[in-house]
Design a binder for these strands. Structure first.
Lengths: 236, 236
DNA sequence: CTTATACGGAGGATTATCCTCCGTATAATT
DNA sequence: AATTATACGGAGGATAATCCTCCGTATAAG
């Protein structure tokens, strides 16, 4: 006699192991793809890059909207954890804020949510509380840094959030995902320190690109083989 | 007897006044639309927002590629002017750099070019020299600021360029174009000064958004009426 | 070994975008 | 004012991209 599951409000039964793996993989891949290609990215690309068939994707997420919500919720939950850990483990409020910002870059929450904003209603019984908790956890970091006197008083929570959006989104052009991530961290350091020389010689994260690199951006490690193909076709 | 124009390499004859107006308007609108919607934005939207028929657009620019090149060239030429004027008219090298960056934001060059990068070959007999001149004019500003000792030595020309890209691109979500522009300038000031409080109380350009604004981003002045409609349809 | 669960992907339906074509409108010229 | 070369708009057929269901096959669980 297996565990009964007659009540429709209960979780519908545990997934088979391969199904659970695929579910997770789809969520992670979807985060990447939505960030790169926007809210109307072909679901087929998500499936392909997640290594599953399109049928599997649709079995788990009945439509685009359901998938997007799941992606956002997943990302929000991770953010909350990161922020709370930063607050708990760092000694100065400023250090906690900085650590949280770097971690947020890695999670790409600040990139997914805005990317889906056009199309998604976030004022949802499920998403709203998660958003609030997530925002509150970061806002506490900001306020603490304000009180500590280490964060310029003119800088608001919204400024921090929006700069994270700017830094999270991949730069356009054929930069590899990895290089993009490194540049995000480098530019975050740059934002923290400002443009003027500082007495504190804290080094920038990530590699500098030379002017020449910038010029030959088109030649740098390709991220998306598919796009290269598209370009060729267009140029025919 | 009108002026002869038998040589096919000569300019094909002056445009009629309305045609010239439309030509210009299409270029400006295309810059906006490519920035907002990416390189494969519907040409029909460009035509509509430029206030011309789709037929007119195709008459002036035989295909997407031609239009994109024209947009890029136009933007590059404006950039060069701006950079050279900044260098000539400002007293300190740092001030010139800052002025140029703010001006570049307004031109959105740093947003268009990368947006089209995926799809466009910039190593073109026409575009290449313009790119080189444009890059050189900014690079001179960067080097001057380095020599002056007012720009951190670790910051490269590429960093400046890429930060401009990040700051130029409109934030996703339904922010009005105007608010987006203001926030770009504000965040540029933020980058210049860094996160820590400064002795120099130079105020930030543009309005601060409150956490509440950020939360209700969905309610802030809509930029693209069409998209709002789309969202409604999806939600049906 | 059995079977409930899950998988992949072909393919018809739908939708979005392209881009030509031609009847009408307007600027320039005399 | 009349003439005409130039330019305009947008309908609509052609093409391309994406959706998403369906069903025969594969695999985890017991």
């Amino acid at each position: 006699m297996q565990r009964a599951n007659r009540n429709p409000t209960e979780s519908p039964r545990a997934l088979r192991s391969d199904a659970r793996r695929n579910h997770r993989q789809i969520l992670l891949t979807a985060r990447d793809v939505f960030v790169e290609r926007g809210p109307s990215a072909p679901l087929e690309e998500i499936a392909r890059r997640a290594g599953v068939g399109i049928g599997t994707l649709y079995r788990r997420f009945s439509d685009r909207d359901t998938l997007m919500r799941a992606v956002v919720l997943d990302a929000l939950v991770e953010t909350i954890e990161v922020a709370e850990r930063a607050a708990a483990e760092e000694t100065s409020a400023f250090a906690a804020l900085v650590r949280d910002m770097h971690a947020a870059l890695d999670l790409r929450v600040s990139a997914v949510i805005p990317a889906l904003l056009d199309v998604l209603d976030l004022d949802d019984a499920v998403l709203l509380p998660a958003r609030d908790r997530s925002a509150a956890s970061v806002q506490r970091l900001v306020e603490a840094a304000h009180s500590e006197g280490t964060l310029d008083a003119a800088i608001t929570f919204a400024d921090i959030g929006m700069m994270l959006v700017r830094l999270s989104r991949p730069l356009p052009g054929p930069l590899s995902a990895e290089l993009n991530a490194q540049l995000g961290h480098r530019h975050l350091d740059l934002l923290i320190a400002g443009l003027h020389p500082t007495s504190d010689p804290a080094p920038l994260a990530g590699p500098a690109l030379s002017a020449d690199d910038l010029h030959r951006l088109g030649d740098i490690a390709a991220t998306r083989p598919d796009d290269a193909k598209k370009v060729e076709e267009r140029g025919r």
